[in-house]
Design a protein around this nucleic acid. Structure first.
Length: 415
DNA sequence: TCTGGGGTCCTAGGACCC
DNA sequence: TCTGGGGTCCTAGGACCC
């Protein structure tokens, strides 16, 4: 386990047994800000903030020099500039970040086929099978760090452990530019003294809640009664927190998660009271959602309208439709009807959003092969649907249904 | 100090069915 | 003729994560 070095971060002592630490968590350091510095080398070593300079914007990323002033991601820009008036503010360039993200993800893919992306700048890697080719987990981690630095000019930190949660924790503790290996038998000793906020899923509200019940460290959570945790965070949360506090995290590294919803939202520069502007924005977003659905060959069955009013209260209203859709016109029809039915056209609106949920594979939904409640339809129904669409006799059952169960469209594989 | 935009997961209540 | 229990679906809101 880690000892602290001169800067307070944890480092891996030489000779640690890394044989059980086969899950790596790789996290780019100050990713967006670091990419910007590649394009502005003269700013290296200065407090740099990435984000828009507008009134309601927030900090997207900050260099470590800016973080010394208490400037972190998601901080309102107005506060950030008050805390660090000399900060240099750069506009974000998401295409650049996507480009560098692909480069580092490719490096990961070349080390192991079992890579789980988490957003744009993080990934879990299962490197148990990489041993014979690349060596022990620590060797693999060092290789990745060297390659990322050499091929992109960016710096990352790596945590290695026997579970995802501890690996992610370890990468965070080792930042910046660090590597921390946590052998399975040292997990509890690392975990229990740490504050509860380090537990995955404990944010500001839950932290307050647990502290109010006298729980301050992960060890406190580990020793807490189930009844107390149940009251504090509900059934699912109680089990999860208790397990995590004992280093138990059975989630495997899985390569690809299916998208469950797609949406867009926009915060206006100033609150809007003109319903015509709201409708225009709803139409634009409906189309954006529809384009993404079509590109992914998905259709949505539930349409959600989101509004945030001037006082920051936020509501969502949803409607499930009979025919799943990928059409902007249809999505707009639904959200605008919901909007009109609300009867709050006079209220100042800060944010509008449109989302499609209950996504299904477009091809199967179109033929009606799959039904959420019925499951896969039988052959007769399938033939009826196919005949209606392609003409009688045009489609043979064997071709329509695919070759075997595992080749069925992906919705059938959900569990 | 005043809160982005992309998401996921969980809870809880009511409708409805058996 | 007064009411059980399980299961699923739908909706709304909230917490959390990157």
């Amino acid at each position: 386990m880690g000892k602290q070095d001169g800067t307070g971060r944890h480092v891996t002592p030489v000779g640690v047994d890394d044989s059980t630490a086969t899950i790596l968590h790789v996290d780019m350091d100050a990713f967006f800000a670091s990419v910007e510095l590649l394009d502005h080398p003269e700013l290296v070593g200065k407090p740099v903030i990435v984000g828009h300079r507008s009134a309601r914007s927030i900090v997207t990323a900050a260099t470590y020099e800016a973080r010394k002033f208490g400037v972190n991601s998601a901080l309102p820009m107005s506060i950030a500039l008050r805390r660090c008036p000399d900060a240099i503010v750069l506009e974000p360039h998401f295409e650049r970040y996507t480009h560098f993200s692909s480069m580092v993800m490719t490096i990961f893919d070349e080390v192991t086929p079992i890579v789980e992306r988490l957003g744009i700048d993080e990934a879990f890697l299962d490197v148990a099978g990489a041993r014979t080719v690349f060596g022990s987990p620590m060797r693999v981690a060092e290789l990745i760090r060297a390659r990322v630095r050499a091929e992109t000019g960016l710096v990352c930190s790596v945590g290695a452990a026997s579970t995802k949660f501890v690996a992610k924790l370890a990468s965070g503790l080792s930042k910046p530019d660090g590597l921390l290996v946590v052998p399975a038998d040292q997990t509890i000793a690392l975990l229990h003294p740490l504050p509860i906020a380090k537990l995955w899923g404990v944010g500001g509200k839950t932290e307050e809640n647990l502290r109010g019940r006298g729980l301050h460290t992960i060890g406190d959570v580990a020793r807490a009664s189930r009844e107390m945790l149940l009251k504090a965070v509900g059934e699912a949360g109680a089990d999860r927190l208790h397990d995590l506090a004992w280093g138990i995290d059975p989630r495997p590294v899985h390569t690809r998660a299916e998208e469950k919803s797609v949406g867009h939202e926009l915060t206006f520069e100033t609150n809007i009271t003109d319903p015509a502007i709201i409708r225009t924005e709803l139409l634009r977003m409906s189309n954006m959602v529809a384009v993404r659905l079509r590109n992914a060959q998905l259709v949505g069955r539930t349409v959600v309208l989101k509004l945030r009013f001037g006082d920051f209260t936020t509501i969502t209203r949803s409607r499930t439709i009979a025919e799943p859709t990928d059409l902007g016109r249809k999505i707009y029809e639904e959200v605008s009807e919901i909007y009109e039915a609300l009867g709050r056209q006079d209220a100042p609106i800060r944010l509008v959003g449109v989302r499609a949920e209950q996504l299904q594979d477009a091809a199967t939904a179109q033929l009606g092969l799959w039904d959420e409640s019925e499951g896969w339809r039988d052959a007769e129904d399938v033939m009826d649907a196919a005949s209606a669409r392609f003409g009688r006799g045009a489609v043979k059952p064997a071709r329509l249904l695919g070759h075997s169960a595992h080749e069925r469209p992906r919705l059938g594989q959900r569990d």
